[in-house]
């Protein structure tokens, strides 16, 4: 190693200074380009989504107001009119998935995080955490399969056969359950990081006052890590909103203003996939409609990510 080093620096010692400086400059500029590239990606996303979305809204058949307020989403209807381009059923479907999967993943993720951070021994944690993270690494198409092959049949047996409640084969609930399972590790991992960042001295202070581990966890650690935990919740929900394959496969393809999770619905993402499969030509109203929906989706997740990042930043400033 040392031999190698002295040899190569011997060579560069004989390089003319100017060549060396020029080379350093070129490298620095190239690396700077790589660093700035990510900004270009963001700009690219915004331009490609919004240029097509604006094209969509400039059409005489649609308008922005009925798009945002309308309760009918029938882009393939023979009569192309603004009433058939109301995005709210898709948003309703997306939010239904987000709410149900969130109510599964947030408590379980937080519980897992408290267990991993406060209760598990280092050894147990080193086994449990990677195993839990496997859940996040499984492709979403697999979760879609699992929803149809396992969750829906169970719902059918339990709800339909036993209680007589009608369950559609494609329904929001099965999809939401698997999305919930999928985001448990995300919520758990970020919450656990936040809890582990809480200084040990705070825990000791509470123990020294005669608090039990339960009290230390819930009354000191969780409140102290609260902003990190909230940020984890937002990221988890934003993931559920952007989830595509599981809901496309399991939740159905019928945009519907329903509150019944056992009905088939369609999410924004599922609609985009549906149209892409239909091979809508570019420039057609359907080809453009997916960009209007995509832009709506992007805005929703973008705002959530920004909020969670700023909460997390404030949290880090307190403890680092």
């Amino acid at each position: 190693m040392l031999k190698n080093l002295s040899k190569s620096s011997f060579i560069s010692f004989y390089n003319p200074q100017r060549v060396r400086n020029l080379r350093e400059r070129i490298i620095a500029i190239t690396l700077f380009g790589c660093g700035v590239f990510s900004i270009l990606v963001t700009i690219g996303i915004i331009i490609s989504l919004f240029s097509e979305a604006i094209g969509f809204f400039l059409r005489p058949e649609v308008n922005l107001i009925t798009f945002l307020t309308g309760t009918n989403w029938r882009p393939l209807a023979s009569q192309v009119s603004p009433e058939n381009f109301g995005v709210r059923p898709l948003i309703r479907g997306t939010l239904m998935i987000a709410v149900i999967s969130g109510s599964i993943a947030l408590p379980l993720g937080l519980g897992s995080a408290i267990y991993l951070s406060e209760y598990a021994s280092d050894r147990l944690r080193s086994i449990l955490k990677p195993s839990l993270e496997l859940l996040a690494g499984i492709p979403t198409v697999v979760y879609g399969y699992f929803a149809l092959s396992f969750v829906t049949p169970i719902l059918k047996v339990v709800l339909e056969d036993q209680l007589g409640i009608r369950v559609s084969f494609f329904n929001a609930f099965s999809a939401a359950v698997v999305v919930g399972i999928m985001i448990i590790p995300i919520v758990a991992s970020i919450s656990e990081d936040a809890m582990r960042a809480v200084p040990r001295s705070l825990r000791e202070g509470a123990y020294a006052l005669g608090a039990t581990k339960f009290e230390v966890s819930t009354k000191v650690v969780v409140p102290a890590a609260l902003s990190g935990i909230i940020s984890a919740f937002i990221i988890g929900i934003s993931r559920a909103i952007g989830e595509t394959m599981a809901v496309t496969i399991a939740a159905g393809a019928t945009p519907r203003m329903t509150l019944n999770p056992l009905d088939g619905i369609q999410t924004m993402t599922a609609f985009i996939v549906q149209v892409s499969f239909g091979d809508a030509p570019s420039g057609s109203i359907n080809g453009q409609s997916i960009f209007a929906v995509g832009a709506t989706l992007f805005m929703m997740t973008f705002v959530m990510n920004i909020i969670s990042a700023s909460i997390l930043k404030r949290f880090r400033e307190v403890y680092e």
């Binding site: 996303i45 490609s48 989504l49």
Partner: peptide, 29 residues
């Protein structure tokens, strides 16, 4: 740049598909 990278990590994958369709697939026509 840091904020932007963190944000990109949270953009739904389907949005990347739409970016790719416009920029690489069609090259804006």
């Amino acid at each position: 740049i840091n904020l932007n990278i963190n944000n990109l990590a949270g953009v739904p994958s389907i949005v990347y598909g739409m970016l790719g369709l416009v920029v690489f697939g069609r090259m804006f026509g």
